[in-house]
């Protein structure tokens, strides 16, 4: 005889991913490492921002980069490797986002001693990366002026849980009809506490302010790690 039964679950659909993200976060904490997840649409300037950040923070800090790409292209990884930074490339096999397990594989390929900062470059996409926690302490979106000021209105999910938004390519402002106030109002409606930076990776404008903020986060992670 067959009987039917209703079984309560009430679990996040991606709870398996969330669990591994927790493990990643624990490992970062143990080593006193600040990990940042950089998300953006393709072409917003993730790699340029990473290179600018590396330039400012080396040699005083130990940095590693984990690159997410949908296909085995090594353009970004090679660019970063020329700066003498350990870089691991994760090919997502066509997937539109990194998940916590993929990041775990990347971490396992790095020697973590002496590393203060791990920069994770997510796949260029404003939709899918929003759903997958990685376990990084900081989640950041790089937006760029040429993409338009309406992105927070069209892709609300990605702006919800982030810690900082970096608006890149501000040197192009004179040529664009980008309404910064409209962009910011949308952003703040979704995420009132988000840190906001305006930069130009081309001219270097604003990079110091962003990097100083990041430095403070790295120091704070280290102090917390020492305290425990």
């Amino acid at each position: 005889m067959k009987i039917s039964k209703h079984v309560k679950i009430v679990e996040n659909i991606l709870s398996a991913n969330d669990q591994i993200a927790q493990d990643n976060a624990t490992q970062f904490r143990q080593y006193g490492i600040t990990a940042i997840n950089i998300m953006a649409s393709p072409g917003a300037g993730k790699t340029s921002l990473i290179l600018q950040t590396i330039n400012k923070l080396t040699p005083d800090l130990g940095i590693a980069v984990i690159e997410g790409d949908t296909a085995p292209v090594t353009i970004d990884a090679n660019l970063i490797a020329t700066h003498g930074i350990p870089v691991v490339q994760i090919n997502t096999g066509g997937d539109c986002h990194l998940d916590a397990t993929m990041l775990r594989r990347g971490i396992n390929q790095l020697s973590l001693d002496g590393i203060d900062l791990i920069i994770v470059e997510n796949v260029g996409n404003l939709v899918c990366p929003a759903a997958f926690k990685l376990g990084t302490q900081l989640n950041i979106v790089v937006a760029s002026m040429p993409e338009g000021d309406d992105k927070p209105y069209k892709y609300p999910a990605i702006y919800r849980g982030i810690d900082a938004l970096i608006l890149n390519k501000v040197d192009l402002k004179p040529h664009l009809a980008f309404d910064t106030d409209y962009f910011l109002r949308g952003l703040r409606a979704l995420n009132p506490k988000v840190e906001y930076f305006e930069v130009s990776c081309k001219t270097g404008e604003g990079i110091d302010i962003w990097v100083n903020w990041l430095r403070e986060q790295i120091t704070s992670t280290k102090n917390k790690s020492k305290a425990t």
């Binding site: 067959k2 009987i3 039917s4 039964k5 209703h6 079984v7 309560k8 679950i9 009430v10 679990e11 996040n12 659909i13 991606l14 759903a131």
Partner: peptide
């Protein structure tokens, strides 16, 4: 983004 329940036999 939740799985609420399942019906099993």
């Amino acid at each position: 983004f939740r799985m609420e329940s399942i019906e099993i036999q």
